[in-house]
Design a protein around this nucleic acid. Structure first.
Length: 263
DNA sequence: AATATTGTTCAGCA
DNA sequence: GTGCTGAACAATAT
């Protein structure tokens, strides 16, 4: 579930709670979420250090340490972070707890263990070596770059938008949202669209994310014109009140309004 | 009790 | 080689 706007909310949360505090201890309760590292290496890399800056690229949260290394958090489908005083308010599936000298904890919770945590030397090199595409909300990411990234793609627009190596930040829910706002059928292929239509897709996806980042990720605060909280069984289209349907597109479930998003 | 869900990786196919 | 699709992964809800 955590897509770009969710991870951006986590980033802001960490930025406003857990920066500039010395790390006293790191407790790993489940090594399944550790990538390329063991518990002692992770603890050794964090103890005595502090987080100085919280950054984000796509669905990755990058925490800069005071020795210029980074702790990378990916949240999988069910991950989140929480900051609380030791011994209080711990969530149910804490996999890693980072304890500070002020008796507060930054906990990484992931019910389904599909997220990942790792220490890296350099954020730019990490993004390059993983071949991640540009972040959707990066101000340097232009509509020209978008057209270039999509040129020659043979698959559906939905699966292409979800490919983090092409562009970073869009998941299943918001790819449906972008298709809905542009009134495109979920099976629409990239090759079916001309540059002008793709330019509109580019503007729309940035507008949606900007809107959700501003209003917050709580569904009740989102504008009702979004499909996102009408996604599901027995839901109605916020535009025409028709029934929302579900089909499989590139192996994922796609929710859409068959009358607003005709072929 | 199967099935769907979610993001990423990877096998297999065109 | 390349790019795309679908299965696998974990744990839970329905």
């Amino acid at each position: 579930m955590p897509e770009l706007p969710d991870v951006e909310a986590f980033r802001k949360y960490i930025q406003s709670t857990a920066l500039h505090k010395t790390i006293r201890d790191v407790k790993v309760f489940d090594t399944a979420v550790l990538k390329n590292t063991g518990p002692s290496v992770l603890a050794g890399g964090l103890k005595g250090r502090s987080f100085e800056q919280a950054e984000r690229h796509g669905k990755y949260c990058l925490l800069a340490l005071d020795n210029s290394k980074y702790l990378v958090l990916h949240f999988g489908m069910t991950g989140f972070v929480k900051y609380y005083k030791t011994g209080t308010q711990a969530p149910n599936h804490v996999r890693v707890a980072i304890e500070f000298e002020n008796d507060y904890v930054l906990a990484y919770d992931s019910q389904r263990k599909l997220g990942e945590i790792q220490l890296i030397d350099d954020a730019t090199r990490f993004i390059e070596s993983w071949k991640l595409g540009p972040d959707v909300m990066n101000p340097d990411f232009s509509d020209k770059d978008f057209l270039k990234a999509l040129s020659g793609r043979r698959g559906t627009l939905k699966s292409t938008l979800m490919n983090q190596k092409i562009i970073s930040g869009i998941g299943n829910v918001y790819s449906d949202e972008i298709m809905f706002q542009e009134r495109l059928h979920p099976n629409t292929k990239v090759a079916d669209l001309d540059d002008e239509q793709l330019g509109l897709v580019f503007k729309t996806m940035q507008r949606i994310f900007a809107q959700v980042i501003e209003t917050g990720i709580e569904p009740q605060n989102m504008p009702d014109s979004l499909l996102t909280h009408h996604r599901g069984r027995d839901m109605k289209c916020p535009s025409c009140q028709g029934a929302i349907e579900k089909i499989k597109v590139a192996g994922r479930s796609a929710y859409f309004c068959p009358s607003c998003q005709a072929h």
